[in-house]
Design a protein around this nucleic acid. Structure first.
Lengths: 347, 347
DNA sequence: CACTAGATAGAAAGCGCTTGCTGTCACGCT
DNA sequence: AGCGTGACAGCAAGCGCTTTCTATCTAGTG
């Protein structure tokens, strides 16, 4: 039924070993023989049996990319960049690797499940993107998994994740970015800033919030805990949180959101409340996703070099770039000041 | 080094066959034996060797999802829905399937490469999303591949793709949607409509444009080819195309975009040209991605039930839902009239 | 011209798992 | 008591490929 290596060998009048060597290109094969084999492969329309090959060679060409939310461009952009570096040539002949993205949906269990599945497939490499969940049990579990993967020869790289001892990491300076943003707002004269945080248990959330608070503290601005609301990383969450913030303190002059998507929701809530941006209330986001420039007014935010970081992580995962010193590279965000922030009302 | 089935068997004092049967749960094993085995598995921290298992059983638990652009929420939303239906339980014991998304970047070669890679892995199922490329050679190549995959037992499902004889398809009625949109605009009184199409060789592009033209024809509105510009499915393309349309005919009263992202670019171009939306020019998008409601004014568009379609495709791929009659299900879009469209200037 | 090294090709032993077929018991019938 | 019958468990034969070790042949060398 299906064509096997042996069939090709028979057709090309060589041994299976030779066919394998032609296909893998890591052993001298006479040009004439090679041609004969390739011809047979072509004629029979032979497709290598991946599992068999992986079993015999004890390695596979599968590379996994874990993301928290595949519908979120934040992850899409990184994943795309990673895949670009991996999908290409380089590696075993036949050349291609199967770079696949796995959507955890932010669930710790699914993250672990995917890791196990990839371990099961003897993946060549795994890249984990996005913030981690700060549950100690889960952290240990993931750490163990990563160590086991690494022990089994899988290259593990983190991208936009806090560093861990188990893997090489490209990390975003979320704390610094958050600080930059709030400094900017304070510099404009704001003193009553609402903060819409992401899910409480995520590192990204915590770091950005820490930056925000650091900026407040540095400027001697009181940090009323009632001005912080936790939510999800989505638009609706931003909308609702803004309404809540406004309810708690109608005199707010600025809202800092956990990310751009949340900021968009905030803008909508503000508009629906009859407030103008930035005249009445300034709004700031985070990430600088493509759509933020299209908000009206355009969103002030912190640009994270998602594509660059992803590409680098991908290259490291493929062993095409050296790991950063200490196994950790921190990438800073850049403040993008746009129309959504301005001086406070009473200026 | 790595724990194998045999190790577990030794520890549990049973044969490897029994361990395998416990793990696969498709053969009677006495409860006490099962427990002993499970305990050994746990103690040894055994992880099944996927390739070996796939080789022996001649099937794998890999499911591939092909998307054109993973950074585009259009695909992200579908992929997420598909993965949700697949990742869950059901299937071989151990239960989980490895649902992975592959990013073709819209390139025909990569599409084919991924298909081959998936074939090589003996994937359990493959779901192709998004429009196809209308190059006959490529179409045949993909068709052949799909047939081979199907012959090898891989379930193939198309989601948001035009139907082909080789697979079950959930298709979007892009033509109907395009028509709806343009009818709406014509109904408002518009007669000079610019159209920003996607890449010329994609089915999605063609179908939406056909719908647009059908609406024009039905209303007896002249269809000046100079009012149509082709581009990519991204924001910048929308921006540039709009400028071009304006150059060609400054009296345009409406712009219909290939999708929401393009529409956002169009809005920006219009604003930068000093035109108000919808007072001076109306704008319409397509897809109703989450951010379209946050555009200012909110985008009139055609909502496509991406998540529903994806979920259905996923279920069909897993054999958990019957294929639609004839192997084809067409899903209609729903016109969402919002603030970005209104009566024309001179009304 | 015998001899060795280099270049190729093949034989064969697995890689770790699944599964058809063959036992082995312990029951429950007649 | 004799036996058919389930219910389990184990044997062993692969699945299709890679790779080590060996065999063969050619060509270069002193």
């Amino acid at each position: 039924m299906t064509v096997t290596l042996a069939d090709v060998a028979a057709r090309a009048q060589v041994s299976p070993a030779t066919v394998s060597r032609v296909l893998n290109g890591n052993y001298p094969v006479a040009a004439s023989t090679r041609e004969r084999v390739l011809k047979a492969v072509d004629e029979l329309d032979y497709v290598l049996n991946g599992p068999a090959s992986a079993l015999a060679a004890a390695t596979s060409d599968l590379v996994g990319i874990l993301v928290n939310d595949i519908a979120d461009p934040f992850f899409g952009i990184m994943a795309s960049a990673i895949q670009n570096e991996i999908g290409g040539p380089g590696g075993r002949a036949g050349g291609e690797r199967l770079a696949v993205v796995c959507n955890t949906g932010g669930s710790p269990e699914r993250e672990l499940t995917y890791l196990t599945l990839l371990q099961r497939q003897r993946a060549a490499a795994v890249v984990l993107t996005g913030g981690a969940i700060e549950d100690p049990a889960h952290l240990t579990a993931v750490g163990n998994k990563l160590r086991k993967l690494a022990d089994a020869g899988t290259r593990v790289v983190l991208c936009g994740r806090p560093p861990t001892p188990e893997a090489i990491a490209i990390t975003f300076d979320n704390r610094g970015g958050g600080q930059l943003l709030t400094e900017h707002l304070i510099g404009l004269g704001h003193r009553r800033l609402g903060y819409i945080a992401g899910p409480e248990e995520r590192t990204t959330t915590r770091h950005r919030l820490e930056g925000h608070r650091a900026a407040l503290a540095a400027a001697g601005v009181e940090d009323d805990p009632r001005r912080t609301v936790y939510g999800r990383y989505d638009r609706l969450s931003g909308y609702e949180a803004t309404l809540e913030l406004l309810r708690r303190d109608p005199t707010l002059t600025a809202v800092v959101a956990a990310n751009d998507t949340v900021a968009l929701g905030a803008c909508a809530a503000l508009r629906d409340s009859g407030l103008r941006i930035p005249d009445d209330v300034s709004v700031a986001g985070f990430d600088d996703l493509p759509f933020s420039i299209d908000a009206v007014p355009a969103l002030t935010t912190v640009r994270l070099p998602l594509a660059e970081a992803g590409a680098r992580a991908g290259r490291i995962a493929m062993g095409r770039e050296e790991a950063p010193p200490g196994g950790i590279a921190t990438v800073r965000g850049e403040l993008m000041v746009r129309g959504s922030t301005g001086g406070p009302r009473e200026a």
